[in-house]
Amino acid sequence: MTPLAVTRPRRTRRTMPGLTPTLGFTLFYLGLIVLIPLAGVFFKASGLGFAGLWKVITSERVLAALSLSFGAAAIAAVLNAVFGSVVAWVFVRYEFPGKRLFDAFIDLPFALPTAVAGIALTALYSENGWIGSVLAHAGIKIAYTPLGIIVAMTFIGLPFVVRTVEPVLREVERDLEEAAATLGARRWQTVLRVIAPAVFPSLVTGFALSFARAVGEYGSVIFIAGNFPMVSEIAPLLIIIKLEEFDYKGATAVAATMLVLSFLLLLTINLLQAWVRRRV
């Protein structure tokens, strides 16, 4: 998943064929599969009226769950951005035994059902697990705390950053680095001034996708979270709880809030990137 391109598309000199069918189908399919169904969420939530909607969204418990989901997802996405770039860098620039093997593992979080990931992570990070028991000696508890939520969210979002940064990093011309070095730049200056700007947009895309995916995650988080109201209760769980109470409107109100927040975030990032692309 590469970023929205580093270079600017060349000016169209001749009208390319096929705008109507392709854009038509794109909008039709998008509408049918994504927009109409999602509009249903807003329609159902609007049954509450504005005041009712506001009351649900601003209730203490919903706010706690939303800030937990968005906060933990942000931390997980930062972790993924930092380590994902390191992983991408190492994969592109260095040779070491087992590289291909690790490379093949990267996409695994997509393929492994989230429930299996949740069970496996809980088994590893609970007090009696391979990792949890070591950390328990240091007094760190991961499973059944908000830390556990971050671990699960990092897992499921991991492929996004690596797979967006990797191809772009591969494209960075080494000649430029050499040139920079010849002109007397130190290595860290080259990395900061030549490589970082080229990679940055893709890093942001990876961050955004990883963040967006983590915000809504349910299956894997639920096993490791602990699920305490106000402490480790994620927003999707609150949706389930509201459904369990047959409060469909309340459930869709929380869902709609999450949707709007994620949408605004993704839109900001996409606009920012288009702007950066135009300036470069």
Partner: peptide, 12 residues
């Protein structure tokens, strides 16, 4: 909008 399904909770 194409990105949106990434951010929609599976539950939703």
């Amino acid at each position: 909008m194409i990105d949106l399904p990434f951010s929609v909770s599976p539950v939703v």
